[in-house]
Structures are given as C-alpha cells and as structure tokens.
Design a protein around this nucleic acid. Structure first.
Lengths: 132, 132
DNA sequence: TGCGGGCTACGAGGGAATTCGTAGGATGCC
DNA sequence: GGCATCCTACGAATTCCCTCGTAGCCCGCA
C-alpha cells in the first residue's frame, strides 16, 4: 500500500531547484516563465509544487510582498553532495572511488578539466597525509 | 494529471537489481529471503515487482522450472553509467568533471584508490589527445 | 464604487509506484 | 485419491506525484 517517500527530491522539484539556484530568489511568475522555455506548465502547478517544497523544507519563502518570493534552502553544492552520497550508497556499494572511476571512464572530460581533477587529487593526498 | 515515468528505475526496482547483480539469477523466494534482512517484504510483493520489471525490460526470466528464475538484463556497469549520465545532466549541468570534483571533495577515498584514479586520468589524457 | 488582473489557497483527479490478498494450478507425500 | 505446500497470475487498495480548475482576496484605476 504505502510508497516510500522519494529520496531527497523528485524530478519536478529538482527542476525548480535548478532554476532557483541559477536565478536566485524568485516569484512563481518568474519561475514559470523560466520553466516555460523547457516545459510549459500551468501557473498553479508551479505554485502548488513550491508550496509542497516549502512544507518539505526544500525552499523557504518570503511573504513580505504580495507575490511571495521563493528561495532554495540548501545551496547547490550541498545538494550535489547529498545526491552523490545517496548514489554512492545505492549504486556503488558505498565506494566513492568506484563512482569516480565509472564517471571518468564514461564521461567526456576535457584536458583542462582533467588537470583540475588532478589538482584535487594532489590536495586530497596531501590532506590525507598522516591522517592514519 | 499525467506523471512522468520515473527515469531508469525506481528505488524498489533498484534494490532488487542490486540483489540480482550480487546473487546472479534468482527465484522470487531467494530474492525475498535476501531482501528480508534489509526490509521484510511480502512474497507476492516481490513477485509483482519482478513481473513489472520484466515487462519494462529490466529483467528477463527463465520459466523452464516451476519457480521462475530472474536475471538482470543490464550489467551493473551499464546501469551505473546510465545513472551517472542522468545525474550529470540533471544536477551538474552536463559536466562530468564537476561531478567528479564534487565526489572527490566530499567522499572518503583511500590513498590506494586515489592512485587508481590517477592511473585512470593518465589513461584518459592519453586517449583524449587532440580532442578539445 | 465597480471592474480587471494578479496572487494565494485548496482540493479534485489521474497516473504511477508499491503493497498485498486471493484464486487457481501444479507437485509431492501420505 | 486427498491434503499440504509452493508457485504464478491478477487485481484491489493505498499513497505519492503532478497537474490544473476554481474560489477568494487584494490592489490599482477609471
């Protein structure tokens, strides 16, 4: 009967969060307009979704003006972290490195980006020094 | 009204797939027993889920014996790839390297694993020579 | 004051995900 | 044969997600 609550956020919620991260605090109208380019959606659909997200603690809202302004509670980076943690557990047996290896094997990464990743590795190795 | 079909696989489906990957082709009973340790579930619940997954092409089944034997259609690696592709698009703006950077920053990765990742980087750099 | 437009609140409604109960068929054992 | 047991098939029940329609409120303006 029951259905386990979707972990972290649903697809539609994620879509709005992405907009909020890129636009900053926004009204329903603004979000709906930004969303329209990708996927036309009714005004009250967006509104309702935001109300639910507010209840769930995904967004907060400023009611000081007539058109309420919504804002993502978690920063984008926090969210990415949470998602990766979840994915690491659920699909990579808890191993971050296996995830990274899979991503590097599959994804197209430019030489520049590879260099950045390499720098991160250096940092991680330096930080881990003497930790054991 | 409509609700977009969950991408790739639902949580419950993923749980069964994980079992199938680790156990190999299994019967409903075997899966249910393996699952019971994590989350007690009715026999017919598991059966129904597998039937649906078979319909959706996530598993195939061997009916040569009375107790049908189910098997994951996609290998674990294929699935991980598909998930990472999806996640890269939906949460990292299509940038694999950003995903990797986030994972490396957050996750605990041993020195040994770091070395493995470094080797992968070397490989990727070699292969990517000439690409922008 | 009356009207139009914009905003929020609320709830209905349909499809999907997940749960399980019940029925019915096969199988093995006495 | 008759019974207990195990299996599949099927569909009901429940919850969640997502959609939007409608109602009601407020504000500005003629």
């Amino acid at each position: 009967m029951a259905r386990r609550r979707t972990p972290i956020a649903t697809e539609a919620e994620l879509e709005l969060l992405r907009l909020l991260w890129s636009l900053g605090p926004s009204t329903v109208r603004e979000l709906r307009e930004a969303l329209a380019r990708l996927r036309p959606t009714g005004y009250t659909t967006v509104l309702k979704l935001l109300q639910i997200m507010a209840e769930r603690g995904l967004v907060r809202r400023d009611e000081s003006e007539r058109a309420h302004r919504y804002e993502a509670v978690a920063a984008e980076v926090e969210f990415q972290t949470r998602f990766l943690d979840h994915l690491t557990d659920s699909l990579f047996g808890g191993s971050t490195s296996r995830l990274v290896q899979r991503a590097l094997t599959d994804g197209a990464v430019s030489a520049e980006e590879l260099a950045e990743i390499r720098a991160l590795l250096d940092e991680a190795e330096g930080a881990g020094e003497g930790a054991s």
